[in-house]
C-alpha cells in the first residue's frame, strides 16, 4: 500500500484486498449498533450526573445534532469508498482517492470507528499501545489491527492538513 498526496487529494494506491476490505468496513465499524459501551463513548456525558438539567437538555438538543454530524461524516466516507466496489479479485492493487474537501469527514469517521471498536472490545491501554502485536490470530487481534490501521490513516490526513 502506498499513500501520497496528489493535487491536494489523498491517494491510497496498491491496496491489497485485505486492506481494501478494512477500508470498506469503516462505516460499519463506526456504528455503535446499539452496543451500550460504544454508544456511551460516542455520546458521552457533558457534565457530572449532578447537573441533571444540563444533561437532560444535552440529550434533547445536542445529542441529535451530534448524531447528524457523525452520520454525515460516515455518509461522505461511504460515497468515497464506492471506488472500491467490486469482488475480492477486482480489489487487488486498487486505488482510493480521498478529495481534500472530505478530509475532515474521514478524520471523523476514522475516529468514530476506532472509538467504537475499542469500546466494543474493551481494549486496555497497554493493548492499544502494542503496535507490534502480530500475527493476527483472533478476531480481537484483527480489531486491534483495524484500530492501528485507521490511526495510521488519521495521522497521514492530519499531517496532510498541517502542511
Amino acid at each position: 500500500m502506498e499513500i501520497s498526496r496528489d493535487n491536494n487529494d489523498i491517494e491510497i494506491s496498491e491496496l491489497d484486498p485485505f486492506l481494501a476490505e478494512l477500508l470498506r468496513q469503516i462505516p460499519a465499524s463506526a456504528s455503535p449498533d446499539g452496543e451500550p459501551a460504544a454508544e456511551q463513548r460516542l455520546f458521552s456525558s457533558p457534565a457530572n450526573s449532578k447537573e441533571t438539567e444540563l444533561c437532560a437538555e444535552w440529550k434533547t438538543y445536542v445529542e441529535p445534532e451530534l448524531r447528524r454530524l457523525f452520520q454525515s461524516a460516515t455518509e461522505t466516507v461511504t460515497e468515497d469508498l464506492k471506488q472500491l466496489n467490486g469482488n475480492e479479485k477486482s480489489l487487488a492493487n486498487r486505488t482510493l482517492r480521498i478529495p481534500a474537501k472530505h478530509a475532515d469527514a474521514w478524520l471523523c469517521a476514522l475516529n468514530q470507528a476506532r472509538l467504537v471498536i475499542a469500546a466494543k472490545n474493551n481494549f486496555t491501554e497497554s493493548e492499544l499501545g502494542d503496535h507490534f502485536r502480530s500475527p493476527i490470530g483472533s478476531r480481537r487481534d484483527l480489531s486491534l489491527f483495524q484500530i492501528n490501521f485507521y490511526g495510521f490513516l488519521q495521522e497521514f490526513i492530519l499531517r496532510d492538513l498541517g502542511d
Binding site: 458521552s44 457533558p46 447537573e51 444540563l54 445534532e65 471523523c108 475516529n111
Partner: peptide
Amino acid sequence: AELYVQQLHGYLLLATLEK
C-alpha cells in the same frame, strides 16, 4: 463553555463542563 464542550464532543473528545 457549553458551546466549547459541544464542539469538543463533535470531535469525539471526552469533555465536560464543570462548575
